[in-house]
Design a protein around this nucleic acid. Structure first.
Lengths: 161, 161
DNA sequence: GGTTACCTACTCGGATAACGGATGTCCGAGTTCGCAAGG
DNA sequence: CCTTGCGAACTCGGACATCCGTTATCCGAGTAGGTAACC
């Protein structure tokens, strides 16, 4: 039950993009260089974020990625779901159907007590993720590390080294 | 972030074992037949449960697996951890170390705000899993499906078909 | 009849393949901007 | 000087390899119990 490393990349990249002047797009290459990440693979992750409506992309010169909506409207759950997919971590294959007294017309994902317990825990996880927005994260970082926004802007700006 | 299917098998198997006369061991083959699972692979999962101290195993004739402790003392988290491992789902590779101002002597798994947020959600998940014991599950099942214990006993008993 | 030694069948345990998804890389389609030529 | 057409460079997007972990399988080590021989 290991999460893709792309989740970490995506979260940090979204945070950095939230510090860039709105309306300015940042190409993958510059976002990747920020943390020394492989650009081509990061691009793949950002595509997923774009498909999910979290980022918007522009091709051609002066193109790249930017936040598609305000940081208040982007939660940790949104990003995790965009990268990892929407399906649940616990897979209920409904093995009860193959046990004694198992019925084909019952949805054991709903009826099975074990499945219910696992879903309950997973719901708690999702709820906690949905409660934290990118704006919340950004505010906390700015309080602890006031230099972060400036560093991000200067390193991601159009003319950066 | 997909969980191994072995978790479902392990949970249902532990539940079934909780219905067997204590002191009686059930071999993998009979446990597997209960749901039509591949015996050899189920055996692998049960080995993990035995290593975790949830089950105890006995070799030789009349051998097999049994619960190593009372169902009240076995939580969903115990089983999940035994199968999936103890490491967290969100991998913080500390990419901040490679960013501007990144320091090698800082543990960003603790310091990074994003990592904190993800850990907080994961803690909620673990807390919810730890709150549910095998005894809780069993009690709910027995209330909804009074025939379940008897079915399990008769199908797992030593002389079962 | 009781005891003891052996032998057989049974079970777990770990070592060993096969498959699928995550990881990593590459090139093509489309667009924007700059430039140069013409009016 | 202004307009307009062209070209070149840049960027995303998806198609194509590679690697690692899950899935699946098998055979060997060890044990308990039954059996038969012996006392």
């Amino acid at each position: 039950m290991r999460m893709s490393e792309g989740v970490e990349w995506a979260l940090h990249t979204c945070l950095n993009l939230s510090w860039v002047e709105s309306g300015e797009a940042v190409p993958t290459a510059r976002l990747a260089e920020f943390y020394g990440l492989p650009a081509a693979y990061l691009n793949k992750q950002l595509q997923a974020l774009a498909r999910a409506g979290i980022l918007s992309s522009t091709t051609g010169p002066r193109g790249g990625f930017r936040l598609a909506r305000s940081p208040e409207k982007v939660t940790l759950l949104d990003v995790v779901t965009a990268i990892e997919g929407a399906e649940e971590a616990f897979r209920c294959d409904q093995i009860l159907r193959h046990g004694p007294g198992g019925r084909q017309d019952v949805d054991y994902r709903q009826a099975c007590v074990i499945s219910q317990g696992m879903r309950k825990a997973e719901l708690a996880w999702r709820t906690e993720l949905a409660a934290q927005s990118l704006a919340d994260i950004r505010a906390t970082v700015e309080r602890r590390q006031p230099s972060a926004p400036g560093q991000a802007r200067s390193r991601l700006a159009a003319g950066a080294a």
